[in-house]
């Protein structure tokens, strides 16, 4: 009996391992291939390159256009995410706690970016903002305004999920009875307790802005070159150069994710997400 049951158990353990291995291979193979392509000096008729070089990295990092593109993308990202969080977090909180009936409207509103194809949305925006008293098309401001709309779903989902884990209304009322104002209670009690969700929102939004191409290309074009547009231009010049940009982009996103996740774990000593059951009450 024992002999026959062991192989069955092994087969059961092997199943998920194979699935995970295939999934990881599927996810990482393109990245590994891109990395190899970016450092390949000679790669013609073999599985792996026959010689390696970092010259493409040297080339892009010595190109001021690339560095400015990174800085511009960072600027747009920081401004958009800051604006998004500053507006959306209080709005989500107020609707969820004080006007739950109206939350449905916000839910519909945050789904709209998924409903409109980027090209359609971009053409509409160009028509709307190319004239008028303050023409915005071609400036960084239209990019920030559009990205603000696009990152709404990420902020809403992350922050709302965090809010569901706390008794926000009770916490606010307790703080008010204890002598706090509403704004102070929000800043000192609610915000620290939805911090992890806010950081996830920040990370998702920043990654989205960093990787966005269509809106940037159509609304601002070459006047405000971002990383994605630099990448598009690099692809026209040479494959390995474009691969080096892609790998650099991935490393940058990994770095930002790491920093944000580390900040998210920074909680007061012993602060747990869920209360301890039972206890020593007597």
């Amino acid at each position: 009996m024992r002999r026959s049951s062991q192989p069955v158990a092994r087969r059961k353990e092997a199943g998920p391992t194979i699935i995970i291995a295939v999934l990881l291979l599927y996810l990482f193979l393109p990245i590994v291939a891109t990395l190899l392509f970016s450092i390949a000096k000679d790669w013609q008729s073999s599985i792996l390159p026959t010689s390696y070089t970092l010259s493409w990295y040297g080339h892009i990092f010595s190109d001021p256009r690339f560095l400015f593109a990174v800085l511009r993308t960072l600027l747009v990202g920081v401004l958009t995410v800051s604006l998004g969080l500053a507006v959306m977090v209080p709005v989500i909180f107020v609707l969820a706690v004080y006007f739950p009936k109206w939350e449905k409207l916000l839910q519909i509103s945050v789904l709209l970016p998924f409903a409109f194809p980027p090209v359609v949305a971009a053409i509409g925006l160009i028509k709307l903002y190319s004239g008028g008293p303050v023409p915005l098309t071609g400036t960084i401001w239209i990019l920030i305004a559009v990205y603000f709309i696009l990152i709404q779903p990420f902020i809403y989902q992350s922050v709302r999920s965090s809010l569901r884990t706390i008794h926000a209304q009770d916490l606010m009322e307790a703080a008010e009875v204890l002598g706090s104002g509403k704004v102070n209670a929000f800043l000192r009690i609610i915000l620290p307790n939805i911090w992890s969700g806010t950081l996830v929102a920040c990370l998702l939004s920043f990654s989205m802005v960093f990787g966005e191409f269509v809106m940037g290309r159509m609304l601002v074009g070459g006047e405000f070159e971002t990383v994605q547009q630099y990448l598009y231009n690099a692809m026209k010049v040479s494959g390995p150069s474009a691969s080096a940009v892609v790998v650099t982009y991935f490393l940058f996103i990994f770095l930002i994710s790491g920093i944000v996740l580390k900040l998210g774990r920074r909680k007061p000593g012993g602060y747990l997400a869920h209360p301890k059951p039972g206890g020593e009450d007597q």
């Binding site: 007061p268 012993g270 602060y271 209360p275 301890k276 206890g279």
Partner: peptide, 13 residues
């Protein structure tokens, strides 16, 4: 004194 609510039992909270 230095424990957080989640580290306390229901009665202690």
């Amino acid at each position: 004194e230095n424990q957080y609510p989640a580290q306390l039992s229901g009665g202690q909270q």
